[in-house]
Design a protein around this nucleic acid. Structure first.
Lengths: 65, 65
DNA sequence: ACTTTTTGTAATATATAATTGACATTTAGT
DNA sequence: ACTAAATGTCAATTATATATTACAAAAAGT
């Protein structure tokens, strides 16, 4: 299950995976893995991404049912 | 920074740390550490806890600023 | 067409989340 | 006061998130 919400939010913010990675302090591969799905990031990292992309946890990481 | 929101939600649901741990599939110590703060759980675990306690990510794990 | 940027992946190494077992303290029940 | 359940915390181990290095392919720019 890919994380489309995060990818869309990133593109809306007009930052590349690498730029987002730098902004939140991880590597580009980590960002790529999260967007690609089958990945389980830490809460701290999720919160950092939310802060940079101006979104909330629910907006980026919540999935219904 | 303790996670008071989660502790309150758990008590409102009238489950012990151990019961919650069983319900989400981790050990009691893990739940205790999250409530005690200075801990960085995985997104998957946060989502499991939300599901069991009938709360959203923002309700349990969002902190302003 | 060519060049540069961006993205998708893989293998190995490192940091840390989560487990296990155990014990002390606190809280609730009787 | 006594007992049992619940919580706080510690040390050692295991599982896994994240880093590092690297390479190929796709997308965007000129």
């Amino acid at each position: 299950m890919k994380n489309k919400k995060m990818k869309i939010a990133r593109i809306e913010s007009e930052v590349s995976q690498e730029q987002l990675a730098d902004l939140v302090g991880v590597t580009r591969q980590t960002i790529n893995l999260i967007e690609s799905g089958n990945y389980n990031p830490s809460l701290k990292l999720c919160l950092e991404i939310c802060k940079v992309l101006h979104k909330t946890l629910d907006e980026l990481f919540w999935e219904e049912n």
